[in-house]
Design a protein around this nucleic acid. Structure first.
Lengths: 217, 217, 217, 217
DNA sequence: AATGAATGAGCATTCATTCAT
DNA sequence: TATGAATGAATGCTCATTCAT
C-alpha cells in the first residue's frame, strides 16, 4: 500500500499542528465546495498560513487536493483497520462495519463528503490513482472476511468471494454516503422514511438480515 | 411527479431539434467536465446557437444544468418504465435490470456520468430536488416488485420492503456507475478483475445469486 | 514578406480607431517597460477596453506583443519604402536614410525603443521570427542600392554587396537607437559630445564621409 | 573610471571563490533570462548560497544586477586592454579587434548576451551609469587609435576622430552581438548567409576592406 | 554571518453574464 | 428573436524580500 507523495518535502518539516490545520481546512473546503470551487487563498487564510507557504508545501492546487484525499484515506484506513483485525464471524463484522459507518458518518461527515466528491471526479488522473489506494484496502478486508467465512462454513461456497466483496462494498459505500452526503441523504429518506437517519438499530437489523441471507448457506 | 421548470418559456418555443441539440450538448459537457468546468460558450457553440440565445432560454448556468439533469432523468425514466410494467417474478426483473444496466451503460454512458456527477454535488439546492425526481421513480419500481414478491411468496415477508428496495438500489446504482464512471470503473476492476466489464454473464449470475438469497424465503 | 498573424480574427473586426488605440497603447507599454513589466490590465485600461476584450483579440500577452511588434515593423516599412523606391545614387540615399533616422527617431522614438527591446529578447521564438520580418526588408533595400551603385560605378566592385549592406545596417541601426534609446543615447554623447543629438548636420556630414570612403572606388 | 559600488560591504568580505561563484551564476541567469525573469532564489541555489545571504550582500535584485554588469564590464575591459596597449597600425588593431570579437563571442557569449540585454534596458537609472563605464573605455581606445593613425598618416585627417570612433564601435558592437545574441545572429544570417558564423576569415576580410577605405586617406 | 521558511502584493488569464445591434 | 462582442470580478500561482533562528 505505497501511497505516492503529492507534496514537497517542506510539508514534512513543518509542525504537526500546522500540518493538521492545513489538511483539516483543505478537507473541509474540498468536501463542501468541490475541487473547482475550493479556493487556495481561502484555504490559506482559514488555515492561518500564507498562500506563498501553501505553494511552498504543494506544487499546485491539485497536489493539495491529492494530499488531502490521501490524508482522508489514511484516516479511513485507521477506522477500518480496527475492523479488519478482529477474528469474528463475518456477520458480526458486518454489524460492526455498519455501526462504524453510522458513528463515523456523524463524526467524520466531511471526510466522507470528500470521498464522495472524489468518486465523481470525471478525471482518470485522479480516479485510477485513488481507486486503487482506497479500494484495495476495503476490498481486501471484505474478501478475506468472506473467504474465512467459507472456511468456517458461515458463508456458502458457491459465490465468488471477490464479487461478493464488491456487492457488499456497494451496499456499505452507498450507506456511508447516505449518512453524510446531500444527494444520498435525501435519497435515503425517500426510500426509507424521513426519520431513517435516526433509526440506527433498524438500519442495522435490516442490513444484517439482507446480507445474512445473501451470504449464508 | 411534478418536475419543476428550470427554463424560460422561450425554450419551449424553439424547434424540438434545437432543443434536443442543446440538451444533448449540455449533457455531454456537464457529464465529462462537471458543473464548474463546463463552459457556457462552448456549449452554445457546439449546440450551434449563440450564448445570447442560451441566456434567452435559461436564466443562468445552473438552470441549464438543472434542465439538463431533468432531461436525463426523463431519459432514464423511459428506460426504467419498460421494466416497471412487466408482470414477472422479482428475480426475473432483477436480471432484466442488470442486463439493462449493462446495455445502457455502454450506450448511455454520458447520461450515467452526468447522474453520477449530480449525486456528488454538495449542494442541497440541487440534491433534494433531484433525489426526489430521480429516486422516487426507481424506489417505487423496486418496492412494488418486492411487495408483489411477498404476495406471491417469492420474497420472504420478514424484511422491510422499502429498506430492501434501498439496498437493491444501492447495488444497482453502484453497478451502473461501475460501468460508466472513471472512479467506479477502476474500483470494479480492483474488486473483480481487469476483464470484469467484459464478463457480463458472470456479473449477472453472481448478482442474481446474491440477490436471490437475500430476498428469498 | 508574409507576416504571420498573431491575433484572433476578432481583432480584424473591431473599428480601426480602437485597433490603433490598442496597438499604440501596447507599443508604448512594451517600449517603456519591456515585455515582462508590461501589464495587460494597464494596457487594457489605457486603451479604453476591458481585459476580457483584449483576450478576445489576442490569445495571450505574447501574442499582443508579437502583434505590436509587427505593427511597428509595418510602420517602419512604410518609412523605408519611401527611400527604397527612389532611383538616386547610393550616397544620396544614405543621406536620406540618415535624415529620416533623425526625423523619425524624434517622432517615433517609442517605435524604435520597442524595436530595440525586441533585439535584446533572449528568446529564439521571437528572435528568428522577427529578425526575418524586419531585416529581410532593410537588407533588400541596402543590397539593391549597393548593387545598383556597382553597376553605375558609384560603388567599388571588390566588396561583397550583402556584407556591405550588413555593415551599413550596423551603422544605421545603432544610429537609430542612439537617438531613441537610453543606453545608446548616453553612449552617443560619450563618444560625440553632449550636444550631439542637436548637431544633425554634423552627424550627416560625418556619416556620409565615412560611408562614402568605405564604398567608393 | 570610478565604478560605483552596488553591493554591501559584506560582499567584499566573503571568500573570493564564493564571490566569483555568485557573480558567474548571476551573469548566466541575467544573460539568459533577462533582468525580470532572472530569479533570486534560483541564483542563490545555483551559486550554493542562501537567499538570505544574497540579501546580506546586495540590497536588492537590481543591485545584484548592477554588480553583475560591472563585473562583466571589468571582464571585457581586461580583454580590451590587451588591444589597447599595442603600438600597431590602426588597421592591424582593427583586424585584432575583429578576431578577438570572433574568439570571445564563442567563449564569452554569456557576457555579451548580458551586455546586449543591458543596452536594451529602458531604464535611465541603469543606462547612463553603465554606458559611461562601458563605453568610456572602448571610446578611448578607438579614438586614440584613430588619432595616432592621423599622426602617422594612416588615417585621413578630415574626419572627426571621436565620431569615427563612434561609427567604428557601431560596427564592432553590432558584430559582437551578431555572434552571441539570438536576434542579431539571425539577422547576421539573413544578411550574409546561413554559414556566415563559420566563415571567420571572410568576415575579417570584408570588414577590413570596408573600414580601411573608410578611414584611409 | 548564514539560513531558508514565510509573506502577500501582483499579474495573466478565464468565463458567466449583459446588452447593443 | 438572435447574435456575439464586451465586461470585470475572480483565481491560481510567482517571486522579491523579510526575519526568526
Amino acid at each position: 500500500m505505497d501511497l505516492q507523495k503529492h507534496h514537497k518535502p517542506t510539508f514534512d518539516n513543518i509542525s504537526p499542528e500546522k500540518r493538521v490545520r492545513i489538511l483539516d481546512t483543505a478537507t473541509k473546503e474540498f468536501a463542501f465546495k468541490g475541487f473547482e470551487n475550493a479556493n487556495m487563498s481561502t484555504i490559506a487564510k482559514k488555515a492561518g498560513v500564507s498562500v506563498g507557504s501553501l505553494y511552498k508545501y504543494f506544487e499546485n492546487k491539485q497536489d493539495l487536493f491529492l494530499t488531502t484525499i490521501q490524508y482522508s484515506i489514511q484516516s479511513m484506513e485507521e477506522l477500518l483497520n480496527v475492523l479488519a483485525v478482529s477474528e469474528e464471524d463475518v456477520l458480526v463484522k458486518v454489524e460492526r462495519i455498519i455501526r462504524e459507518i453510522q458513528r463515523s458518518s456523524k463524526e467524520n461527515a466531511t471526510l466522507i463528503k470528500l470521498y464522495n466528491g472524489m468518486t465523481a471526479e470525471n478525471n482518470p488522473r485522479f480516479a485510477s490513482q485513488f481507486a486503487y489506494e482506497m479500494e484495495a484496502m476495503t476490498a481486501r478486508i471484505y474478501r478475506i472476511a468472506i473467504e474465512e467465512g467459507k472456511k468456517t462454513g458461515d458463508v456458502r461456497p458457491d459465490i465468488d468471494s471477490a464479487f461478493a466483496a464488491f456487492l457488499l462494498d456497494n451496499i456499505f459505500m452507498s450507506l456511508q454516503f447516505s449518512y453524510a452526503c446531500d444527494y444520498y441523504k435525501e435519497r435515503f429518506r425517500i426510500y426509507a422514511g424521513n426519520d431513517i437517519t435516526e433509526r440506527d438499530d433498524f438500519v442495522v437489523e435490516q442490513c444484517l438480515k439482507f446480507v445474512k441471507s445473501a451470504l449464508k448457506k
